[in-house]
Design a protein around this nucleic acid. Structure first.
Lengths: 333, 333
DNA sequence: AGCGTCACCGTGAACGTTCACGGAGTGAGG
DNA sequence: CCTCACTCCGTGAACGTTCACGGTGACGCT
């Protein structure tokens, strides 16, 4: 007999039984006759009763663990394959995953919203770390591909430096003379200012002085990759080997090359970053710097585990792990 | 001063303040001095206090809505693009999405686990509807691509019949003489028995008597598609047009064709189902029967909305919507 | 001195469910 | 008739947080 909302008490009253009996009926418990069970279920349905999952979880002292996952986009298979790996790691432990993407949205606001529903949040963040930690309201944060600089933030980082150096060396030994880079414009240029990514910085460190500035910034999508390639070739016609920020953009670039009659890898070597399995079905198959998503997910889950199940006083200000990408040579380079 | 678990009361005691003050500190509320806020925050961190989100949501009468999404796999871009669309539809309303896949797992168990955390569950289900509804424990269920036959189950279905008839007609007019189908083996053959999918049944209805049995069943993956094609061509060498269960498998089939020196679309027309944007970067670009994922997601969200925010007595036993696929002609057929 | 204001802090009472009990009724067995 | 067991059902007391309200000092003003 309440205002807007129907509680267990309302159902009990309407059915002429007690709270506990309603619980028994709803949850399929014993100690209830078939007759009353059906009666209760029917009146519950008629009233449109939906149990409060918050009250239920609280009272039952349930220990469900759910972790928030914040991705850059769900339209890039890299992110969703990472999500798949995380799910594989985490589902056997009975954890659940709350998914979100900051494609067009505010990083920090997302974390704030998620913090009420998740026990930990891991993901690709772009916002200010202090803001993020504040928004998290005490729930542990694990960021990927970016080192943690404030307390309360943890990280699993991808060490591009060594990998990209090796990658470029191998490319040189395969005949590469002049490199170019198609870089991502994330975080988007509108509003915020563009900041060079870690991948770009690693590239510039090892590409050699003449190639370090052969960089174009493009949208993080297939179209963006294609667009980036035409701009790169216009500005630096002598580039014979192009490294692309990620595989999705690399696919766009390869398609564009084909459209423009540029032979890959004959006229132009193309190599992406991520290691998408879909790159293998391109023609030619896409060479790529593969990021071990399974390891990434496992490390992230492990950090969360440490943070949540660890000793009473949390271990360190920040716990960080590292993952090493490795080249996956296919025909495109 | 509890057993294993640290509550707000413990923090209050340790800091020498009251519950409410701890709340104020944790949630950044006013009416608290900077000094005590820091004190509380520090002791909370030292104790490893993590507020119970259940108690918090209950007491604050928060109306967070989270909906569970059960997909076949997160490694198939079709599913994740659907997830992306759902997120786009649902995030502006402030809803959150709990993601899961039944790749190797039990359908019904998943719903049971999710039902404690979600206000509604939508997805691709394969289990028995009655079991699913029972496992949902009162939370509304919306299944995709399968009509609802029991009360408590709702559906948004994809009408393949008309679309596949039109598709095959057009293919015939483009010269197709003999069709073949690469069908999915989901639900997996191990344990459960294989059941023909709706897509297969629509195909068999319109492929003509001589093509209705030119069907091979393969795993739902790139490799599966490739494997399916070799088996299909071995058994039915005269097939000149192959319809593939989904785009992912179709990509595998196309790659296999290329490996076997079969020209597409010259020797063999290939057409998939789903409408993946990635199909466009294949060479040749993949023709496909496109499913409008945005509409699908919107309909599902709308059903959930109706169910949850609707009048006290829920509308009908089952509410169902329909989405029409449409052909997307690219070069592969 | 008296009063009001302001900044800070604490105390019942919710929130809606489940758990641990205890109790009523029935029927069988002595 | 008493007892025991068994089935079914109801009543306080949690669960851990937030809300509404009330209180206490300090300070300034008349």
């Amino acid at each position: 007999m309440s205002g807007g909302h129907i509680t267990i008490e309302d159902v009990a009253a309407a059915a002429g039984v007690s709270r506990q009996t309603v619980t028994r009926a709803m949850n399929g418990m014993p100690e209830i006759s078939q007759r009353t069970r059906e009666l209760v279920l029917r009146t519950a349905a008629e009233l449109g009763y939906r149990p409060s999952r918050f009250a239920s979880n609280l009272a039952a002292r349930r220990k469900v663990r759910s972790i928030g996952l914040v991705l850059g986009s769900l339209r890039n298979p890299y992110y969703t394959e990472l999500a798949a790996e995380l799910l594989d790691v985490v589902t056997p432990r009975g954890w659940q995953v709350l998914m979100a993407s900051h494609e067009q949205g505010d990083d920090v606001a997302l974390v704030a919203a998620l913090s009420g529903q998740a026990d930990a949040i891991v993901g690709y963040f772009i916002g200010d770390e202090t803001d993020l930690v504040a928004a998290a309201r005490g729930v542990p944060l694990v960021q990927v591909e970016r080192p943690a600089t404030v307390s309360g933030m943890h990280a699993v980082i991808v060490d591009f430096d060594a990998a990209i150096e090796a990658l470029l060396d191998e490319l040189r030994s395969r005949g590469a003379r002049r490199f170019g880079l198609i870089e991502s414009s994330m975080p988007p240029e509108d509003g915020r200012r563009y900041r060079p990514t870690r991948r770009r910085r690693s590239y510039e460190r090892f590409a050699g002085p003449d190639s370090a500035d052969a960089v174009v910034v493009a949208e993080e999508s297939i179209r963006g990759g294609a667009d980036g390639l035409v701009r790169l070739r216009a500005k630096h016609p002598d580039v014979d080997t192009v490294v692309v920020f990620n595989d999705l953009m690399a696919m766009g670039a390869m398609q564009q090359a084909q459209l423009d009659g540029v032979a890959v890898p004959g006229d132009l070597r193309v190599v992406g970053v991520d290691g998408l399995s879909l790159g293998a079905v391109m023609s030619p198959p896409l060479s790529t710097l593969s990021i071990d998503r399974r390891a990434l997910a496992a490390e992230a889950a492990d950090i969360v585990s440490t943070l949540l199940d660890g000793a009473e006083p949390p271990p360190q200000p920040s716990v960080v792990r590292t993952v090493l990408p490795r080249p996956l040579w296919r025909a495109s380079a």
